[in-house]
């Protein structure tokens, strides 16, 4: 517990120090155009929480971004677990799916953006798709590794206790892969958030990425910095929420503690 207090203390100290350095740097003549005053950025964020920037206030933008991540990510998680399992647990599944997996994996999610726009236009569907495809391969990789690394002796133990072959997957393989699947879901969420920012920066009329790109278009450094901080804070929140969920669901695992 005191370890945690110490950590919080140092976090406060170092982040305050960073803000102070930032403040004094922004006061220098040569930095004026590059670095806005942190107080202005803070004011902008507070004002944005109440009155709208563009069409929505900050909460509205965050909600838009989160809803995009939610749709793409949920789809990717479900498909990733199903397809990854099929690829890892059945030989035929592996033979069918793996070639496509190997072909698609080295293509970064962002490289899909132009094709997604050609396919789905510039509305929500193309953003869902980009987030989906970027997250899918990450989750699939982890599900595949997790399912493959199931302890063969545990399977033997389950058989000897009378589990039938068709019960093995759901009663032994999948639960034993949960920690690894979870780490995939975690990394995937971070990637989904980053991809969302990219997608919004390239084409959108709202969202956290839009705030940044609008700041650039209107040469408003304060808004750019505010947008970046917003993205960081929400990202941090997502990561923490995921860790909390893991600790709840994987209590049996050392990693979960």
């Amino acid at each position: 517990m005191s370890d945690r207090k110490e950590k919080t203390f140092w976090a406060v100290v170092s982040l305050s120090l960073l803000t102070i350095v930032w403040f004094f740097a922004s006061q220098m003549e040569s930095m004026k155009t590059l670095l806005p005053n942190p107080v202005d950025v803070f004011k902008f964020l507070v004002a944005g929480a109440i009155s709208p920037i563009g069409q929505h206030n900050i909460w509205g933008h965050i909600l838009w971004s989160l809803s995009r991540v939610f749709v793409g990510y949920t789809l990717a998680a479900v498909c990733g677990i199903v397809i990854g399992s099929a690829m890892a647990w059945t030989k035929v599944g592996e033979a069918i799916i793996k070639p496509f997996y190997l072909l698609l994996r080295p293509i970064p999610s962002i490289a899909w953006i132009p094709l997604a726009i050609l396919w789905f236009g510039i509305d929500e569907k193309s953003k869902y798709f980009i987030i989906f495809i970027g997250t899918l391969l990450i989750i699939m990789t982890n599900v595949y590794d997790g399912v493959r690394s199931v302890d063969k002796n545990l399977l033997g133990a389950a058989r000897m206790l009378g589990a039938k072959e068709n019960q093995l997957f759901f009663k032994v393989v999948l639960p034993s892969a949960v920690p690894q699947i979870f780490s995939g879901l975690q990394v995937g969420l971070g990637a989904a958030w980053a991809t969302m920012v990219a997608a919004e920066m390239i084409r959108s009329s709202e969202g956290a990425g839009w705030i940044i790109i609008m700041g650039q278009n209107s040469v408003n450094m304060v808004q750019i910095y505010a947008g970046i901080i917003l993205i960081g804070v929400v990202g941090l929140f997502l990561v923490t929420a995921m860790r909390f969920l893991e600790a709840k669901l994987c209590a049996w695992n050392i990693r979960g503690k």
């Binding site: 302890d151 002796n153 545990l154 133990a157 000897m160 009378g162 032994v172 639960p175 034993s176 049996w252």
Partner: peptide, 20 residues
């Protein structure tokens, strides 16, 4: 083949770690 009429107790026990 394996069956519940013959139960094994292993040296490395092999409990299912995700179950109570």
């Amino acid at each position: 083949k394996p069956g519940p009429d013959r139960a094994v107790v292993y040296q490395n026990i092999l409990l299912f770690p995700w179950l109570t």
